[in-house]
């Protein structure tokens, strides 16, 4: 019993220790707007890194352009801040030339699905051993709230004053159908599930994709009249449903419950499979060809 008690105390690391270990305090406070969820995504990633115990000298962070792509700048680790949408292309290069490195990519919905859409589907297809943490806020927040490929149909944006006419991309579905081996989607309001999920994504050997639905309180909220910060955060809570619950309602639910499902977004671990990653296959080929 006493041993257990001691173990528990060792595991309880304080938030201050984590922040001192991973954050660049000279860059703080960060640039994100009041009530923006991207800060939480960074926080959850730091906790996942701590739980997984990754060697920070063997970890590289990459990002493209956008609000979410500023994240690696706040972490005290080697990082590459690349051109718009090309973070995954750079990540492919880093992982293949040096397979020992843990490669983590922060990207946004515009960076990943819009400008870098092509790189994204091919990174999934190749199943490279990288972890992609994509922040989906439904809009191009940094440039003033233009329509993004993920903006839901009918929503308002500065370039869609009468409502968006285009159907939206579902980032996680896209990742699954393109061949990623670990796909999860979470909101930012509940901390523990995303922390565990990011940890699983770091452990997975292959393309891991974690979509974080983060509220954009400046661009999206103002255009779509989402109310106060708390109301907007709660809106995400009402809009989402756990993937397990979704499947149960689809199977056994009443007609009314099934109708309610239509506007809901599934959250949870959406896909898991085991496949050989490209970097492993390249290493095997090198060993095979060398005499």
């Amino acid at each position: 019993m006493e041993e257990k008690e001691e173990k528990r105390k060792v595991e309880m690391i304080s938030a201050k220790e984590i922040r001192d270990k991973y954050l660049r305090h000279d860059m703080m406070p960060h640039i994100f707007c009041t009530g923006c969820g991207i800060g939480n995504v960074l926080d959850y990633t730091l906790w996942a890194l701590e739980k997984e115990g990754l060697d920070m000298d063997k970890t590289v962070f990459l990002s493209g352009i956008g609000c979410s792509s500023r994240l690696p700048g706040y972490i005290d680790v080697d990082s590459l801040h690349t051109t718009h949408g090309r973070a995954l292309a750079f990540a492919t290069g880093v992982k293949i030339t040096n397979p020992e490195l843990n490669v983590i990519v922060f990207t946004g919905d515009g960076d990943c699905m819009g400008i870098g859409g092509n790189h994204f589907i091919h990174a999934c297809r190749r199943n490279i051993d990288i972890t992609v943490i994509a922040v989906n806020n439904y809009i191009y927040g940094m440039t003033g709230g233009q329509v993004a490929p993920t903006t839901p149909e009918g929503d308002y944006a500065t370039t869609a004053p009468y409502g968006n006419l285009e159907p939206a991309f579902d980032m996680s579905e896209m990742a699954i159908s393109s061949g990623a081996t670990y796909v999860a989607r979470w909101g930012v309001k509940r901390p523990n599930q995303p922390i565990n999920s990011i940890q699983e994504a770091l452990q997975n050997k292959g393309m891991s994709f974690v979509e974080m639905m983060s509220p954009c309180t400046t661009a999206y909220s103002r255009q779509n009249r989402m109310g106060t910060i708390e109301e907007f955060w709660d809106w995400y809570e009402d809009k989402t449903i756990l993937a397990e619950d979704y499947e149960k309602i689809e199977q056994y639910g009443s007609e009314e419950e099934k109708e309610e499902l239509e506007d809901k977004i599934k959250v949870g671990v959406l896909h898991k499979e085991k496949k050989k990653s490209l970097s492993e296959r390249i290493q095997e080929l090198i060993e095979e060809v060398q005499v």
Partner: peptide
């Protein structure tokens, strides 16, 4: 501590 987006709170 976890919900704070700005790393401002420590318990």
């Amino acid at each position: 501590e976890l919900i704070c987006p700005d790393f401002a709170i420590t318990v």
